[in-house]
Computed example of a mutant assay.
Amino acid sequence: MNGVQTISLGEIMAKKSGSVDPSKFPGEVFDLYSIPAFDSRQPEVVAGKLIGSTKQIVEPGDVLLSKIVPHIRRSWVVGEKQGRRIIASGEWIVFRSEKIYPNYLRHVLVSDPFHSKFMSTVSGVGGSLLRARPAFVEKIKIPLPPLEEQKRIADILDRAEALRAKRRASLAQLDELTQAIFIDMFGDPVANPKGWLHAKLGDVIFSASDGPHVSPEYTENGVPFLSTRHVRAGEITWEDLKFISKEDAEIQWRKCKPERGDILYTKGGTTGLAATVKTDRLFAIWVHVSLLKPDPEKVDSLWLESMLNNEFCYQQSQVLTHGIANRDLGLTRMVKIKIFLPPLHLQKEFSHRIDTLERMKIVHKASLAELNELFASLQYRAFRGEL
């Protein structure tokens, strides 16, 4: 690290921060830093009578690191007091020291170099049962420049992070605009104020099929093999791919071959998300993804994608999804999803508008990718004393 001083996390870990059982103070209101509250970056304001277990007592400026589901990077700086006692759930590892500028430490704890070390401390059988072990976390060394340098680094990274956040917010607004245009043109499907014809999904597609029901043999390269995690509402992602051989893909394509204009619709695990195939790239799909072949004389693919991703159809998909541990939206059930059916020329007009939005998204995503690369470079240089 080019001579940068380091410190073990154990030296700044608040091992005796104290605890409280809020239920013994039923009328008192607490600020609770919980894992579910993290995404909003606002602690829960909750009465003691509604809190069912003992919590850690934390202080403003403490830095929290989530030890559960550790592949999701969660670090949070405790905010100022708002006239209430501040507590945190036991899933957080708490750090506290005058040697550390809190926001600098937060950046360290979500950085790539730290995260790789952090994941080596994990135990458990997988998924939500994975836990980072504090006894091992405390042995990890992090760079410790002088306090003023920490503040300078944190300020630079804060500004770069703010740029990324603005770009992500712009993308989210474009996603929301798709549904806003849908409602403006066609009305709410629940009320159907424009009196469009009623139909079912099965009425407007040639077929609904799915991928193989047995685990394939993966290869180092070959044909991309997509699963549920590659399908989001309105988007197919091509990251973290697995591959199968061309020979195996040819066998699968006899039953189920994705083509441009088809729709991928998730049917296992996370169900009810639709994304149109907008590429001629060859790929295959897993059993938990269904392949819908729209009838172009009845329905436009992008319009149908938005219809299926509308809350009206999404809620139907959840009712039709069976199972708890192994959730499944069966092919024979999904085709019963109710839709309305505007004239095809209006569907195509909607599709044209969405094409414009998609081009805007491509520009924003390219900009976000550049900002992500910049941020990663800044992190790398900052924690090596090169910034």
Rank of each mutant, 00 (worst) to 15 (best):
N2Y: 13
M13P: 00
V20D: 01
P22W: 09
S23R: 08
S23I: 06
K24Q: 13
F25I: 09
D39V: 15
Q42G: 01
V45K: 12
A47W: 04
L50F: 14
L50W: 07
Q56S: 04
E59S: 09
P60I: 09
L64H: 05
V78I: 13
F95E: 00
F95P: 08
H107I: 00
V108G: 11
S111C: 09
S120M: 12
T121Q: 03
V125Q: 07
S128T: 15
L129E: 03
A132R: 02
A132N: 09
R133C: 00
L144S: 03
L144A: 05
A154F: 01
R159D: 06
A172G: 08
T178Y: 00
M185E: 02
G187S: 11
D188M: 04
V190L: 11
K194E: 04
A199F: 02
A199Y: 00
K200D: 02
I205S: 06
A208W: 06
H213C: 04
H213V: 04
Y218W: 07
Y218K: 04
G222Q: 05
H230N: 14
I236C: 01
K246T: 10
Q252I: 04
W253L: 03
W253G: 10
C256Q: 09
E259L: 13
D262Q: 10
K267P: 03
G269C: 03
T270V: 10
T271H: 07
T271G: 03
L273K: 14
A275T: 01
T276P: 00
K278T: 15
K278G: 08
L282V: 10
V287T: 12
P294K: 09
P296I: 11
W303D: 00
W303T: 03
L304A: 07
S306F: 07
C313E: 04
L320H: 03
G330N: 15
T332P: 02
L346W: 05
I354R: 00
T356V: 15
T356R: 13
T356D: 10
K361S: 05
L371R: 05
L374D: 11
Q379W: 00
R384H: 13
R384S: 04
G385N: 06
